[in-house]
Amino acid sequence: MTFVLKDYSLKHLGVLWGTFVVRVKILSRYKGSLILDIIIPTLFASIPILLGQAFAGSIAAASTNFQENTGLRANYVVWIIIGANVFGTVMESLWMFGLFVRREQMLGTLEAIVQTPAHKLSILGGLALYVEVKSVFTFILGYLLGCILFNIDPLQGNILLALILLLIGLVPIFGLSFLLGALIMKVKQANSLVNTLQWLVGILMGVFFPITVLPVFLQVFALIFPGFYLNYDIQAALTGLNWFLGNLYLDLSVIFLFALMCPFIGYQIFTKTEYRIKKAEGIGQF
C-alpha cells in the first residue's frame, strides 16, 4: 500500500516536472521573449519616471511632488521600478493558466490533455513552478537593469525578504489564474481579455501610484486583490516604507490567507466551468 501511494505521488511529480520542462524548452526556443520580459518593465517604468523629471524640472523635484501628493517617504524612481517589475511577474502568473489553455485549444491538444490520466493539479503545479522560477529570474534581472539605468543602488533594502514575498505572493495569483482560465475557456477571446485587464490590474496593484490616490470604490477593489499586497510589501521591503498593516506578520497573514483561499476557489470554479463546457460542446473547440 505504501509502495502504491509512493508510486502514485511519484507519477504526480513526474507530470509536474514534465510540464515544467516543456515550458522551459518552449521558452528556450523564444529567447527574445525572455529578454523582453526583462527589459519591458524598465521601459514601462521609464515613462512616469521621465515624465515626472520633465514636468517637475528634476528627479529631486519630482520626488518632492511625489511625497507631497502621496504621503509616501520613498524615492519615486525605485518605487516605480519595483512596481513595474512586480507587475510583470503578476501578469505572467495571472495569465499563466489562461494562455496555456488557449494555446492548447488552438493547437488542438487541449481535449487530449484533459483525457490523459494525469491530474490537472499536477499540470497546474508544473506551470506554477515554471512561473515561479521565471518570475524570480526576470524580477532580479529587471530590477537590476532598472537600477543600473537610473543610477540607483540595487542592494538597498531587504532583498531576500522581497524574494520570499514574491514567491509566496504569487500563489494567490495562480488561484486567480484558474478563474481567468475558466473565463478564457468560455469566451475564448484571450488576447482582448489580457490587453484590457492588465491595465486594470496595474491600477489595482498601485504600480505607478499608491492606491490612496484612487477613488474609494477602486481602493476597496484593490484591497481585495492579492496583487496589491504583493506589490506594496515588496516595495516596502526594498525601500524601507512601513508595512501596509503596520507589521510584516500582519501583511504576511493576509497574503497567506489569500494563498489558501484563491487557489481553492479558482480551482473549484475552473473545474465546474470545464465540466459545463464538456457537457455542452467539448473543450476542443476554439
Partner: peptide
C-alpha cells in the same frame, strides 16, 4: 493609469 502617474509627479 498614465494620467494619474503623471499628476502625482506634477
Amino acid at each position: 493609469i498614465f494620467t494619474v502617474a503623471a499628476l502625482i509627479l506634477t
